[in-house]
Simulated assay, not measured.
Amino acid sequence: MSGTELAAEIVRTTADRAAEFERRTGTKPCLATVLVGDDPASVTYVKMKRNRCAKAGITSHHVPLPEETTTEQLVATIRELSADPTVHGILLQHPVPAHIDERAAFEAIAAEKDVDGVTMHSFAAMAFKEKGFASCTPGGIMRLLDAYDVDPSGKHAVVIGRSPILGKPAAMLLLARDATVTVCHSRTKDLPSIVRTADIVVAAVGRAEFVRGDWLKPGAVVIDAGYNEGNVGDVAFDEALPHASLITPVPGGVGPTTIALLLEQTVTAAFATLG
């Protein structure tokens, strides 16, 4: 399942919409990126997102903050961006340094600018199928399933991982599409036997090649949402390939769709300001 091809299609459409917004308003959609500290991986991710913004006709307003920034200072910065009418979307690059209350920082993002889908408001909207922004990686996963004609309705989906911005929202989005969802985690007993019952597997555990090929039910659809050192995902790809009917590679699977959805939702947020 190529996320690269799907992402390119989403970005093309997004760029057309961004150009239309600029024609109507004289300004481009604007995404504010906030980065605390200088973690090399986070710096790279933010740079990549800003480059993609430029290619899609979206202004990127970057706010770098020092490592010693407090929760209170970060919250104040995000609230300023939330109140700024020239900013349409806000991305707080995560994880933040350990001394910061990440949830408090996320909740400072105005719901209408939460284009990364990280607030409790966005989570509730996903769970209740209400208007709002999807968490970008889970939202990208759903777009991949749609692109490859995988209908979750009536299928058993096993999500491995329960993070608030990946595992849990992925489970909610699948449930909203009438899948029967099992959420597994580090304390799940006999995990392989549960995974073997899955029609759809979403691996989001953050451990390299954790899911083995013989865990999979023949014909399962496998979504690898992990990215680990050595350019490998959470699924042992070569082992899984003979068992899966469809599988996302790492890299080139879920990652590109995540960024594409961030751009798409930024432009959607911009248009929402027009009423």
Results as ranks from 00 to 15, higher is better:
198 A>T: 12
92 L>V: 15
62 H>A: 13
16 D>R: 14
61 H>K: 13
37 G>Y: 02
139 G>A: 05
84 D>L: 07
18 A>D: 10
118 V>E: 06
155 K>M: 12
170 A>P: 09
211 V>N: 05
140 G>V: 03
169 P>I: 08
208 A>E: 14
275 G>Q: 09
162 R>L: 13
212 R>F: 10
57 G>V: 01
191 L>Y: 06
83 A>C: 02
34 V>H: 01
236 A>Q: 12
252 G>R: 00
147 A>D: 15
185 H>A: 12
112 E>K: 03
111 A>L: 05
117 G>K: 04
126 M>H: 10
198 A>Y: 11
103 R>P: 00
155 K>G: 06
188 T>Q: 06
161 G>F: 10
259 I>G: 04
13 T>E: 15
216 L>F: 07
203 A>C: 05
244 A>C: 08
72 E>F: 01
146 D>E: 15
77 T>E: 11
261 L>T: 02
159 V>W: 10
58 I>C: 00
8 A>L: 12
157 A>G: 12
85 P>M: 02
232 V>Q: 06
129 K>I: 09
52 R>Q: 13
193 S>Q: 14
121 H>Q: 14
211 V>D: 11
190 D>M: 05
210 F>R: 07
49 K>S: 08
78 I>W: 01
157 A>I: 12
171 A>P: 07
19 A>S: 15
248 T>I: 12
241 L>Y: 03
78 I>Q: 00
196 R>E: 12
174 L>A: 13
31 L>M: 14
181 V>N: 00
245 S>C: 06
177 R>Q: 12
219 G>F: 10
26 G>V: 11
101 D>H: 03
201 V>W: 00
150 V>Y: 05
25 T>I: 14
148 Y>R: 03
105 A>E: 08
137 T>H: 13
95 P>E: 12
7 A>L: 09
133 F>C: 08
257 T>H: 09
94 H>R: 08
181 V>G: 01
87 V>E: 04
64 P>K: 09
235 V>Y: 03
114 D>E: 10
273 T>L: 10
171 A>T: 09
34 V>P: 02
8 A>G: 04
57 G>P: 01
81 L>F: 09
152 P>R: 08
